[in-house]
Design a protein around this nucleic acid. Structure first.
Lengths: 151, 151
DNA sequence: TTGCTCCTCACGTCACGTGAGGTGGC
DNA sequence: TTGCTCCTCACGTCACGTGAGGTGGC
């Protein structure tokens, strides 16, 4: 057995863009703003390559932006908070001091709850819009059946 | 009784902006693009004034944009469809030819169905995000109760 | 080696933000 | 009459779009 490194599945920027439904320009722009984890390849002038984890991260970033529609600046704040929590999770896994552990867990609860509240607000707004549209559709359909019956 | 016209409640652009949660610049920009009903005051150089109906219309336009996040160009298409249907409703109310009536009603169904589909897509996206967040919150909470129990 | 996709500027565009300088209505 | 809000340019900005011209990897 040779000592080659594990065959990490690595994708090119164009494939990633297609996978997550965005453009290469957007990915490069986000990277420039520091919204994405720095690309693993040392740096400039070479082709970027992305791991599965990086694709998942990008997908989450885009989802947050779309659903909460915040500015990229606010989005960066959210992403940094997310990464902070990831760091916390690592600290937890190695964890020892139960006092510190509890503190970290409660912080996580706080962040998750806040995000859930945003989602719920959005859902309520969509629900009222849906009810409105459905009601109107209902009335129109009723009129149609009345009109066709009396023909 | 004198012959004064009815005291139509009329608002200034700044009040309207505050009411609906946007800026005067945005309102003027939308007007320029033809997204809003042309202001009732004949036109240029004078202060705009808005009726309750116009405020409600603006509110709906902003809601559609926020919830579906479409471009202002797409938004204009939606708004025009909406106004076309309003015109149809008036034609229907005065309606006579049942053949024409049916045609109009079916058109309304088409538009409403399309809008509902957009809403449903958004709802599905939000639901997956919610499930994701809820799952994570759950796991954290479980860890908290484990940690406190074993203390 | 030949395509194809990638790279970095850099200017264009969309949806407004933000003054500048001036005029209108309680 | 005095503020305050309104008016119209017009340039700035954010989040990318869109080539131009050149280089890298199956």
């Amino acid at each position: 057995m040779s000592t080659v490194t594990a065959p990490v599945v690595t994708l090119r920027i164009g494939d990633v863009a297609k996978l997550v439904g965005t453009t290469t320009r957007t990915i490069r722009y986000y990277e420039e703003l520091g919204l994405l984890l720095a690309p693993d390849s040392p740096s400039v002038g070479k082709h970027r390559s992305y791991s599965e984890a990086e694709v998942a991260h990008l997908r989450e970033v885009l989802r947050l932006k779309q659903l909460l529609n915040v500015s990229l600046d606010e989005l960066k704040t959210l992403v940094e908070a997310e990464e902070a929590r990831a760091a916390l999770r690592r600290e937890l896994r190695a964890g020892s001091d139960p006092q510190r552990t509890l503190e970290l867990l409660r912080e996580a609860v706080f962040h998750l709850t806040r995000q859930l509240e945003l989602v719920h607000r959005r859902q309520r707004e969509l629900a009222t819009l849906e009810a409105d549209l459905a009601g109107r559709l209902d009335r129109v359909n009723k009129r149609i059946s009345e009109t066709t019956r009396s023909r």
